[in-house]
Design a protein around this nucleic acid. Structure first.
Ligand SMILES: [Zn+2]
Ligand SMILES: [Zn+2]
Ligand SMILES: [Zn+2]
Ligand SMILES: [Zn+2]
Lengths: 140, 140
DNA sequence: CTTTTTTTGCAACAATTTTGAAAAAGTCAT
DNA sequence: ATGACTTTTTCAAAATTGTTGCAAAAAAAG
């Protein structure tokens, strides 16, 4: 089982209370979170600036990855344990429920290779799928 | 040929100078633009707030569509002439060049159907491809 | 426990986006 | 063309969001 302490030390990060809180939040929620959401969830127990810096550090060290959002507010989600500062590989898609508003990583969905016109060199692909999730009646 | 006047009246919009300027910009550039870019291109000839509201109106009426960006700054691009306030169909992908920073709609690329896990109902798909464009040596 | 290094919180700042309301401009029927 | 009517633009102000420098606090190392 992945404990916050374990994850932090694995990524050469100090075990501070803010980092443990933020990381625990990602582990509990299992969804993508934006900075304002994190700030709200932690009930203003720590400074806004600290959250910005924590997210920046986590991004850099491969603890979390960016999740695009259609409302412009960048979200973040936990990386797989294979991610590090050097290797940051993500080939999964993100699903945002238009009903409940939550976004989650879908590791199961396979993104087929996309054929680009001549001259375009593909380096990275970001897919945001939107619709209704199982909890919101997608399966009714 | 699509003139700005034509496009505006087709979407039940008044032909005002700001709307014509912004629309002409999209027609000329043929790339996705963010609000700050538009403001800069128009050389502060009109108020910042007006651009925000113009973009909101264009979005609503199906003149432009959102283009996701990895830096969080939302961009916008012209819709096909088939888009309206009611129907807003987009199945193309967006390509952002990591070298020159421009983003463009790639109508030619076909996005294969993606298989989602049970319970997920797909309504819309947003694909942001990143790499180098032909102009920046993608074809060297 | 002491030293060293890193992180946090605060304050101030800058930039971005939103809102309200009056002035200006566009539309339409004389 | 003119005036009534509606929509759009502008300006001022607020709210939100993101950044930077630095001193205090906390974590790791010895
Ligand atoms: Zn990662
Ligand atoms: Zn993800
Ligand atoms: Zn459209
Ligand atoms: Zn597009």
């Amino acid at each position: 089982m992945r404990t916050v302490h374990h994850i932090l030390t694995d990524h050469q990060l100090r075990n501070t209370s803010v980092r443990k809180e933020v990381l625990q939040l990602f582990l509990n929620k299992e969804i993508a979170l934006s900075q304002p959401e994190i700030e709200h969830e932690l009930d203003d127990s720590c400074d806004r600036v600290t959250i910005y810096r924590t997210l920046a550090t986590f991004l850099e060290k491969g603890v979390i990855h960016k999740v695009l959002d259609d409302q412009g507010a960048m979200k973040y989600a936990l990386c797989a344990d294979t991610c590090s500062a050097e290797v940051h590989q993500h080939d999964h898609l993100h699903f945002k429920c238009t009903h409940c508003g939550t976004t989650q990583c879908i590791e199961e969905a396979i993104i087929p290779p996309i054929q680009l016109p001549a001259g375009f060199q593909l380096a990275e692909l970001n897919v945001l799928a939107q619709g209704t999730c199982p909890d919101c009646g997608g399966g009714k």
